[in-house]
Design a protein around this nucleic acid. Sequence first.
DNA 1: CTCGACCCTA
DNA 2: TAGGGTCGAG
Lengths: 264, 264
Amino acid sequence: MFELRLVQGSLLKKVLDAIKDLVNDANFDCSSSGFSLQAMDSSHVALVALLLRSEGFEHYRCDRNFSMGMNLNNMAKMLKCAGNDDIITIKGDDGSDTVTFMFESPTQDKIADFEMKLMDIDSEHLGIPEAEYQAIVRMPSAEFARICKDLSSIGDTVVISVTKEGVKFSTRGDIGSANIVCRQNTTVDKPEEATVIEMNDPVSLTFALRYLNSFTKASPLSNTVTISLSSELPVVVEYKIAEMGYIRFYLAPKIEEDEEETKP
Amino acid sequence: MFELRLVQGSLLKKVLDAIKDLVNDANFDCSSSGFSLQAMDSSHVALVALLLRSEGFEHYRCDRNFSMGMNLNNMAKMLKCAGNDDIITIKGDDGSDTVTFMFESPTQDKIADFEMKLMDIDSEHLGIPEAEYQAIVRMPSAEFARICKDLSSIGDTVVISVTKEGVKFSTRGDIGSANIVCRQNTTVDKPEEATVIEMNDPVSLTFALRYLNSFTKASPLSNTVTISLSSELPVVVEYKIAEMGYIRFYLAPKIEEDEEETKP
DNA sequence: CTCGACCCTA
DNA sequence: TAGGGTCGAG
């Protein structure tokens, strides 16, 4: 038996909006430490890791660890029926093949319960090692989203290059090419508007814009995004979820095709 | 000769937005008591009844009773050309096959007149008997609209059950099921936010959500909606039109298919 | 946060 | 053409 009560229900709505286009079906894992999910996207290229810590819930009861396979589109459909300031409770029983989402309006005048069928999903749960990154960029999530959207109208891939001075996003396509440079800038009014670069080594990596654009669907969850880069490692695009945890997207860099052109 | 002058022209615009998707062609009936319409929807399942009392018009002249057959989509098209605070005058002559809509801007700087061809429509005017209902629910129209929309993403039909405590909307579909309970609540700041239940007998009836969702197009006309239910009678979904009358939608309940499962 | 207007897609 | 989403304003 488990019961998780989340006062800020809109968070869960945003989480599902953020991942439902990337992942069709996934197991949610429930343990005493929190509610989490790890899944590959449907083309098996990107990985999503979500964590909502138990401390972030108003009430968190989980008698034993278990997984629930959900169709994320159906789950998102049900969560759309919750008001933005509704309190959402997720509950279920051991061995049941359904999960219940309960929505309480702030005034308690309207109480809805939605029961969703669970599904069997076999998933390999990969351990993701904590790594040292050559560079970590923190910037406003809306700005990152805008850049990825803009560049994808020119090219399919982006080269992200980090130096001490700033981060450069470059693309190239049939109609031309583009470079967008964001300088490190910590002297802004609000800290969430800052662009901060922590760099051990300069790094320059290429990624498919298609996936980055999917990741930016998580922008409503956080004003800032953190992009962690190392050669030979998947980039991590992280959106913190206030008081609760994070949603992280992993994407392997492309091997630069430019080298083809360098060959004899 | 008739001439109806309506100061709050936006009312008429909203009325047409509310019914034009449900009914294609209909006869408007003009008499000394008011301007009214009664029509079946195009699939002959639901019925719309509109009344705009003569007292609600600034000027109302109707020499003798008559009907005008109008294509509601064309009428809506013309009314879209009126500003939201225009004064609308509807006028015509006996035996003419056209009707004229005149729009005056509040400042009188712009005066438009639109002439529309009438059409011959044979309609049986059903007398709708006033009935006693087992239960009458009054609730905010926006809330009713939201519930019907939300539930239609899960199932096709809704069971509306009324008890003294509240009204429950339930549905069931492939991906799961849902129940939304609205408690009776009269202790709100504004009377139009109240949910009020007048119940003689508990009642539970099933309706096609598709039609209810059409009915909720009338929500802009009124902050509240009244739902009158009795076994074996069509439900009445009524939106009052301030100072003027009402728009009422009638829909027969579905015979519960669950009974099939009870049979041997 | 709710409402309305506009835009866009299905 | 209708429905959903987003954006902007109250």
